[in-house]
Design a protein around this nucleic acid. Structure first.
Ligand SMILES: [Mn+2]
Ligand SMILES: [Mn+2]
Ligand SMILES: [Mn+2]
Ligand SMILES: [Mn+2]
Lengths: 219, 219
DNA sequence: GGTGAGGTTTAGACACGTCTCAAATTCTAG
DNA sequence: CTAGAATTTGAGACGTGTCTAAACCTCACC
């Protein structure tokens, strides 16, 4: 029982299905296709392949669920991705908006040997630059329940713990506001009727949409 | 005129053809196929594709030659590969026998941004761990004419400058003898009839075949 | 409980890179 | 100069992952 080489495509599907699952979103064919940037029929083909490989269970028209084996591979890919993000940010000083795209390609060609070296050199980090947890060498991932910024009451303070990771433009914007993990934020005002929120970061006031505030994790 | 994305396969073919050319070996279909580890007919298919893309000129049954565009891409891939080898050896302490295989995969997913960071962080290295030259940012590669170890006369001393890069077992063996770039070697004896040669490295005598000695570059 | 809308799968096609086997060409000796 | 050997190419197939268009389920609503 040797492993039949899992293509980058398979790894990416498994990763996205896993992430959808852990976000609490049901990994429907459509949701998977949207995440992968492919047509729904392409996702169906892949779901059938994943099932054939024993990496997922697929009940046609009903849904898909990763098997133990499938989850394990998803976690390995996620570990690669997030470790690489930390590495690129820390060691090679890539900006927070650049690391995701880079890691998306590197994650598939990182050997276990190199993974271990990087992990060690970084001191076994637990979170990537966007604040997402990194599965450890045993593939255990610590989940944390974060409040989101929009839940902050006027006058309340908090530390930014997590930001969305895959929109480079948005990340550049957030970085400019210093609304990134480690940043200290104070809620000033929340306009009624789901209006924008005004926050204080490093002495500067910024108005952001409630939509965006909901995507920012704090503690 | 956007570039139509060059697959890893295309990049590898161009690289190997380029290396064959600069080694003075005529890049025949068979030689290319052997280097790439594919059937000769597969190489033919790719040669036709390279020609169609304007990356090479292919005269059926006669031979192939890289175009300007093709050479440029080959040099970019070679630059990626060799820079990565230095990086992996220096920064992540990978052994000289491990870097080649790792770089062979990473070379295709290294962004220009990351390439530049790595180059800078390493202080713009000119040679990889095996002693092969690294094309600079302008893709100029400094060639050097090295003597090979088998040309050394008994009693003569030299510094090892280059070793073969793609045979991990051989490299482990050479590393054990300290017969790697930077090593200091003295020729002791050369047995007649193309027999083995005895060399002194760091106080230890070793007998190696003339075949192997021919593959080691010195200065 | 039927029906339509929306989500999902199938069918058929294509690009890519590989293979095997057969045919074509070139090279090499005699 | 020519026959056999070696090299190279062509034909047809396959696996992978994608697409579009069409058929198919499901579920919610009337
Ligand atoms: Mn990411
Ligand atoms: Mn990826
Ligand atoms: Mn190499
Ligand atoms: Mn390669």
């Amino acid at each position: 029982m040797s492993k039949p080489h899992l293509s980058a495509a398979i790894q990416d599907y498994l990763k996205e299905i896993y992430k959808l699952q852990s976000e609490g979103t049901r990994p429907t064919t459509t949701a998977i296709a949207r995440r992968m940037g492919v047509a729904p029929s392409s996702a169906t083909s892949m779901l059938k392949k994943l099932a054939a490989l024993g990496l997922a269970e697929h009940s046609p028209y009903r849904g898909v669920e990763l098997s133990e084996a499938g989850s394990k591979i998803a976690l390995e890919v996620i570990r690669h991705h997030r470790l690489l993000e930390v590495y690129l940010a820390e060691t090679l000083k890539l900006s927070i908006d650049a690391v995701h795209e880079e890691a998306d390609r590197l994650e598939h060609v990182l050997s276990e040997e190199l993974e271990a070296r990087i992990d060690e050199q970084l001191g076994y980090p637990t979170h990537d630059p966007h604040g997402d947890p990194i599965p450890d060498a045993g593939l255990r991932m610590q989940k944390r329940r974060l409040r989101s910024l929009d839940a902050l009451q006027p006058g309340e303070e908090a530390t930014v713990e997590r930001v969305p990771d895959d929109d480079a433009d948005l990340l550049r914007y957030l970085a400019r506001l210093r609304l990134v993990p480690g940043g200290h934020v104070t809620m000033r005002r929340a306009e009624p009727f789901d209006g924008p929120m005004t926050v204080l970061v490093d002495g500067d006031e910024h108005a952001i949409s409630r939509e965006l505030a909901m995507q920012i994790g704090i503690a």
